[in-house]
């Protein structure tokens, strides 16, 4: 229950953070809410030699709705996202998913940046970031770069961020046209993490057919992914129950399905298809 010894730095600016990281070495970890990292450290599953606390860096928190997108600072807490009017108005599924993370305490401390950078295989927000085609803004000593969500999650608890980079901002494009979205989650009764979590975005054309479909899936494989076969299957088709159900059969095509005590590969595969149907139907229904 007590982590192995580690050094602790509190950065007041991004420059200070980078300097500390340079001093502390590649194995040092950024810490924001700490709600994923600290439990691992207490169990000594993670033993970083140093933590660099970024909570006091100005400008990394907050939600702004701009013409080109919804911009959320990496240090913004889940609770703030869940209750933000801008978020609810722009992408209700993001507020919805943020409100389903952990419990109240976790949502008050946990941050969107920490959540995405930690890339837990059963975390909710990666599915949403994928479905919304979010852009993740990373800053490092050598500058700033923008990473599309589709290139961000690259392995089990592994992202495209390099060791010295810090995730500073997440941008979500503003929807245009007839768009609806929904996040459907089957929570694990013990952990509350997603056994299956499906974020669906549906856009209908003037002909009433799917113009665009995006499905982000979490909890099913070792990292979150887009159910691209399902998406492709639906574009150009009417949003009927049949079409959706048939396409959802491909919900796990892009991953190796995990299994654990709660859900076998078979049951999880079934749930993934089922929740893809539910999320897509709800997304279609949400179209104004």
């Amino acid at each position: 229950m007590i982590p192995a010894a580690f050094d602790y730095y509190r950065a007041k600016s991004i420059q200070e953070a980078f300097f500390a990281k340079q001093q502390a070495g590649a194995d040092a970890k950024w810490i924001a809410g700490g709600h994923s990292l600290l439990p691992m450290m207490k169990l000594r599953l993670a033993t970083p030699p140093a933590l660099i606390d970024i909570n006091e860096i100005d400008g990394l928190s907050g939600i702004r709705l701009q013409a080109d997108g919804l911009v959320i600072g990496a240090l913004t807490h889940h609770a703030e996202i869940a209750h933000s009017e801008e978020v609810v108005r722009t992408w209700p599924l993001l507020a919805q998913a943020a409100g389903l993370i952990g419990d109240r305490q976790v949502r008050n401390r946990g941050t969107i940046g920490g959540n995405l950078a930690h890339a837990d295989p059963a975390s909710d927000l990666p599915a949403v970031a994928l479905a919304l085609e979010a852009t993740l803004v990373a800053e490092g000593p050598s500058g700033r770069r923008e990473i599309p969500a589709s290139e961000f999650f690259v392995g089990p608890m592994t992202t495209a961020l390099s060791d010295d980079e810090l995730l500073t901002q997440v941008r979500f494009p503003v929807p245009s046209g007839k768009v609806g979205s929904f996040y459907c989650k089957y929570p694990h009764p013990a952990s509350g993490y997603a056994v299956v979590g499906v974020a669906a975005v549906a856009q209908l054309g003037p002909d009433g057919k799917f113009q665009a479909v995006r499905v982000g899936v979490t909890g099913v494989g070792m990292w979150a992914y887009r159910a691209e076969t399902t998406e492709k299957e639906l574009v150009g088709k009417l949003p009927t129950q049949e079409n959706i159900a048939s396409a959802a059969q491909h919900a796990v095509d892009e991953t190796d399905v995990s299994q654990d005590l709660f859900a076998s590969e078979q049951y999880r595969t079934h749930l993934a298809a089922l929740y893809t149907v539910k999320a897509l139907q709800a997304a279609v229904q949400a179209i104004q």
């Binding site: 694990h188 009764p189 013990a190 952990s191 993490y193 654990d260 005590l261 709660f262």
Partner: peptide
């Protein structure tokens, strides 16, 4: 929900609150 599960080597697989589902009020 609850059940302690051992593997055949005697390792407790349901050895944490992440796996062992105690009921919650919302259930």
């Amino acid at each position: 929900w609850e059940g302690a599960v051992y593997d055949d080597q005697g390792q407790l697989l349901s050895g944490s609150m992440m796996d062992y589902a105690l009921p919650k009020a919302s259930f």
